[in-house]
Nucleic acid binder design. Structure first.
Lengths: 153, 153
DNA sequence: TATTGTTATACTCTATAACTATA
DNA sequence: TATAGTTATAGAGTATAACAATA
């Protein structure tokens, strides 16, 4: 027997394995759906933050997306090189660099977001609509209110 | 307006963000629960594969856990150093190295698995039992049968 | 002094390529 | 020739430390 009560645990049915592999698989699906827009999931996350906003400092972007500000520098470098994001100092606090979508960036965001949402739907298509809702609700709770959890960063 | 239909998408409510952060948060919780056994989640995965089995080749272990065989070498090196795993060549095919739990490894596995399962329960405690079941069922479906998905590796 | 962006550096994780031994 | 394990190496991704500009 392998556990104290004699039960054997299926290594593919533990929460950690399921979450990790579901996340990895969806990341692959999403990145492949975004390929034709020449951006990846992380870059879409930045465009999404910028869409419908006046302009956001690099630090605010980094904090909101849960990544380091030094990482954000490289992400924005890439997006600026692609012509979808524009950076300029905040006149009211010149330490801040404000990022915003260019016109092309707005178009890229809209098209990429549509493909991303389609990829979400396709990925979830094997689930009943009830399970789909419960999955999203459950994940939202786990991420927002992680019982007994240290924050992920 | 930020999307074609004018809706704004909450960056914290997209599937990719939710899956990635739920996985990261649980990994932190699980690793912290396993600390006192001096193993991490990946190592527990190996012990779990070995528990209740006759002996498993390194390649079979690697394939089953979805990691590379070169990575498995290092993982088993660590587990052997800790005295929880034993390696010896398979007499019927001396290319194969068979891994199995030591007596201490069996004890470590049982204790660590109990703490891991407790961490799972604590992590999910904010969810209703219906949502908990739906979450697990949904994840299982997504990982086993990823609609329109390229395998994660 | 503290904050923001930046750069250089280091670290973790994992995969690829090449080698040895066995089949 | 092909397979299993090993080693050395490289790459992606990310974080830490230090610095310049600004507050």
């Amino acid at each position: 027997m392998s556990t104290p009560d004699g039960a054997t645990i299926d290594p593919h049915d533990v929460l950690g394995y399921l979450l990790k592999h579901a996340a990895a698989r969806f990341a692959a699906v999403a990145d492949s759906a975004l390929e034709r827009h020449r951006i990846d999931s992380k870059e879409l996350g930045v465009l999404r933050m910028l869409a419908g906003r006046e302009g956001t400092s690099q630090l605010a972007l980094a904090d909101a997306l849960g990544i380091d500000r030094t990482t954000m520098v490289a992400v924005l470098d890439g997006l600026e090189r692609k012509g979808v994001v524009d950076r300029h100092p905040d006149p009211s606090d010149r330490r801040r660099n404000v990022a915003e979508l260019t016109q092309q960036g707005q178009r890229t965001y809209e098209a990429a977001e549509a493909d991303y949402l389609a990829a979400e739907n396709a990925f979830l298509s094997a689930l009943s609509s009830g399970d789909r809702a419960a999955l999203r609700r459950g994940l939202r709770t786990l991420v927002v209110d992680p019982a007994g959890a240290a924050p992920a960063r």
